[in-house]
Amino acid sequence: MFVRVGFDISPKNLGTNSTSHTRPFSAIAELIDNGYDPDVNAKEILIDKTQIRDMECLTFMDNGNPDLMQRKLSEIWENQVSLRDILEHSPFNKEEELLTELHAIEGPTGTKIIIWNLCRTSEGNMELDFTTENDIRIICTNDSGTSVPEIHSSLRAYCSILYLRPSMQINIRGQKVEDRPIYKSLDDIDKSYSYKPKTLEEKIPIIFGYNTKSKEHYGLMMYHKNRLIKAYKRVTTQMTSIGVIGVIECNHLKLTSNKQDFDNDDAYKYEETKA
């Protein structure tokens, strides 16, 4: 994986990173977050697939500030041992091939990420499905017999609600993702509710609305500093409120290290019972 020429690529950290994300879309969200970083400040990110020799690869290319990456690259070309290791453990056999990928970055600044050795199912099929035009999908099943929310199976749908206040254009396989804050798709929106965390002086607003498209999908959409962390979380008041969606930004809660969940501490438990 060629990722901003990773700044700490010891085997221990590579192992940690490879097991920290149990869902493909959450791992992709973290790569998108890189573009949101103030040091990068990308305005656009392109997500696509490509073929390198006999391997299907996932690619990410943004137009953010690459100054730090360029310095790291310069250090690596000066160190032939590092360059040799990159060529040995990547899909590229020659330095020229690696440089060709970097030169493909559109515009004066940017970063390109290439991920290969994509996971396969026990039947040998790709875990990521590229057969749908302008989308990347995964097969999801639900033991309860109800349909699976589209954001769990479609990267395009997931990215459309990933941020409450989008500031970067996401493109998937050549087509722009339409930003669609979740509350704008609800009916009978009510903004009068609020929640008082035990650890804060002020109240946090909660937007409620009715999901007329798929009333079996309901619960809290929990964001943290603009980004979606948990979707359709059913807390006490929503256990039986079929079709009701709540949108809340929980900046006071602590995230787990992989940003897939909130720490199950007292603050989170209080929110589960009081929100």
Rank of each mutant, 00 (worst) to 15 (best):
L102E: 05
E150K: 07
I76F: 05
I86T: 08
I138P: 00
K94N: 06
L98Y: 13
T132V: 14
T132E: 12
W116C: 11
G107S: 10
N134S: 08
D129Q: 13
N142C: 14
G145N: 12
F130Q: 00
N65E: 13
L83P: 04
E56W: 13
E96I: 12
D85M: 14
R137A: 12
M69W: 10
L99T: 14
L68T: 13
K94H: 09
L118Q: 00
T111G: 02
E101D: 11
R137E: 12
T121W: 04
I113A: 01
V81K: 04
T59F: 05
W77C: 11
R120A: 10
T131H: 08
L68P: 00
K94L: 13
V148W: 01
F60G: 03
Q80P: 14
R71T: 04
G145W: 11
E88D: 10
L87T: 02
L99Q: 04
S74E: 06
I138M: 04
H103L: 11
P91A: 02
T121H: 11
L102S: 02
C57P: 02
L128P: 00
E75L: 11
E75D: 12
M61N: 02
T59Y: 08
S153I: 03
I114E: 00
E97S: 05
D85N: 11
T121R: 15
V81T: 08
L98C: 15
L102N: 02
E78D: 15
D143Q: 03
V81D: 12
L87G: 00
S153D: 03
L102V: 02
N117E: 09
M61P: 01
N79H: 09
D62M: 01
L99A: 13
C119K: 07
L99S: 15
E101K: 04
D135A: 07
I139E: 12
N63R: 01
S147P: 09
C140S: 15
R84H: 09
P91C: 04
E96W: 07
F130N: 00
M61I: 06
G107Y: 02
I151V: 15
S147I: 06
E56G: 02
I138R: 01
R71F: 06
I114S: 00
N134P: 05
H89M: 05
G64N: 01
N142Q: 10
E75K: 06
F60P: 01
E106D: 07
A104L: 05
I151Q: 04
M61R: 10
F92D: 01
R84I: 03
T146Q: 13
R137T: 13
N93F: 14
A104W: 08
E127L: 08
N134F: 12
G145P: 03
S82H: 05
A104N: 07
W77K: 15
T109K: 03
E75H: 07
E95I: 08
E75G: 11
M61D: 05
E127D: 06
D143E: 09
I76M: 10
E101R: 09
K72E: 14
L73C: 03
S122I: 15
K94I: 02
L87M: 03
N93Q: 06
H103M: 07
M69G: 08
N79V: 12
M126R: 14
D135H: 02
D67W: 06
E95W: 13
W116Q: 01
L102C: 04
H89S: 10
N63C: 15
P108Q: 07
T132N: 09
S82R: 04
D62Q: 02
N125D: 12
E127T: 11
V81N: 10
